[in-house]
Amino acid sequence: MRTRVLSACIALILLCLSKVNGQLNSTYYDSTCPSLLSTVKAAVTAAVAKEKRMGASLVRLHFHDCFVNGCDGSVLLDDSSTITGEKTAGPNNNSLRGFDVVDTIKSKVEAVCSGVVSCADILAIAARDSVIALGGRTWTVQLGRRDSLTASLSGANSKIPAPTLNLSGLISAFTAQGLSAKDMIVLSGAHTIGQARCTTFRSHIYNETNILSSFATSLKANCPFSSGDDNLSPLDLQTPTTFDNKYYINLKSQKGLLHSDQELFNGGSADSQVTTYSNNQATFFSDFATSMVKMGNINPLTGSSGEVRTNCRKPN
């Protein structure tokens, strides 16, 4: 009995130390908001059931948040008299979406545990639940992030990888965030869901040769040479609303929608990993889960840094 009591005390001390020292952990809200995970899952499931594309949009929100000064909820901040937000940055403007869904999730979380859960943590949980809702596998989300008090428009313009990057540029962009080339290749697999605007892939289908000609031709009707910038095409033409490994199968057939997609299978160092994922969906799912946890740990605010916003769109 004494041994069990001692073990429990040690576990509690370690948990408290982890919160003080800024380490994320999966049990962060177990006592302060025990219904958090079920609350977020229900809201995400409802949003994705209403619009399948929303799952990809929520995953992308988490990604674009983490790549700008860490996973701190800065991407959610609206412009104000004192803040220039990230929503109008080139990679985000007229493209990033799902903010209303995050507002809904936040309001539901606030209803069950007010002032406790950060918007940054909600993004991390919602990304995981979106993948599950579209057929992917689960992973354990690490929690304990706090929200930033400001945003970085310049960071959003410079740090989020562009669809025009070549393989070395993609590797460099991810390396700058502490992520490996392997992380980059597997996280790119999130493009097995979602859609892209014509303006992001027009040059790829009209001016480049590393794309199947018949595939390029099929895209031109919806993406004219000089108009239709906001017209959408699925990143994965086969199963655009199912989280699977078809993205990699498409790359092997030169059916990557974006230039940056096809760079992963273009006679370079990424070819082998793409082949592995195209042949083994379970390996892709496992590696994706690992890399999502790693990405979610990019420079989080913890402890007394930042705050827990009551409204994700503005500081308290």
Rank of each mutant, 00 (worst) to 15 (best):
D78C: 00
D78M: 00
D79P: 00
S80R: 03
T82D: 15
T82W: 08
I83T: 06
I83C: 03
I83W: 02
T84M: 00
G85K: 08
E86G: 07
E86A: 14
E86K: 14
E86T: 14
K87R: 15
K87H: 06
K87I: 10
K87M: 09
K87N: 04
A89C: 13
A89T: 12
G90F: 03
N93M: 12
N94D: 14
N94W: 08
N94F: 14
S95E: 03
L96Q: 10
L96V: 13
L96Y: 07
L96G: 05
L96W: 03
L96P: 07
R97M: 05
G98L: 10
G98K: 10
F99L: 09
F99Q: 06
F99C: 06
D100P: 00
D100I: 07
V101A: 11
V102R: 02
D103P: 03
D103H: 04
T104L: 02
T104Q: 08
T104C: 00
I105A: 00
K106S: 10
K108V: 05
K108G: 08
E110G: 09
E110M: 12
A111P: 02
A111F: 06
A111N: 11
C113K: 09
C113L: 10
S114I: 01
G115A: 13
V116L: 06
V116K: 15
V117A: 03
V117C: 07
V117L: 03
S118Q: 03
C119N: 06
C119D: 05
C119M: 01
A120D: 01
A120C: 00
A120M: 02
A120G: 00
I122R: 01
I122K: 01
L123E: 09
L123I: 08
A124D: 04
A124Q: 08
A124C: 09
I125T: 07
I125R: 05
I125A: 07
I125W: 04
A126E: 06
A126C: 06
A126N: 06
A126S: 14
R128N: 13
R128I: 04
D129M: 11
V131Y: 13
V131R: 15
V131E: 15
V131W: 13
I132A: 05
I132Y: 02
G135M: 11
G135Q: 12
G135L: 04
R137E: 13
R137M: 03
T138E: 15
T138W: 11
T140W: 05
V141A: 06
L143V: 04
G144N: 05
G144S: 05
R145E: 09
S148Y: 01
S148L: 01
L149F: 12
T150R: 03
S152T: 01
S152R: 00
S154V: 14
G155H: 04
A156P: 08
N157M: 03
N157L: 04
N157W: 02
N157A: 05
N157G: 09
K159H: 08
K159N: 13
K159D: 07
I160A: 10
P161F: 05
P161G: 11
A162L: 11
P163Q: 15
P163R: 14
L165A: 12
N166V: 12
N166P: 12
L167F: 13
L167N: 11
L167A: 12
L167R: 14
S168F: 04
S168R: 12
S168Y: 09
G169P: 11
L170E: 13
L170W: 10
A173E: 02
F174E: 02
F174Y: 15
T175P: 07
T175K: 15
T175D: 15
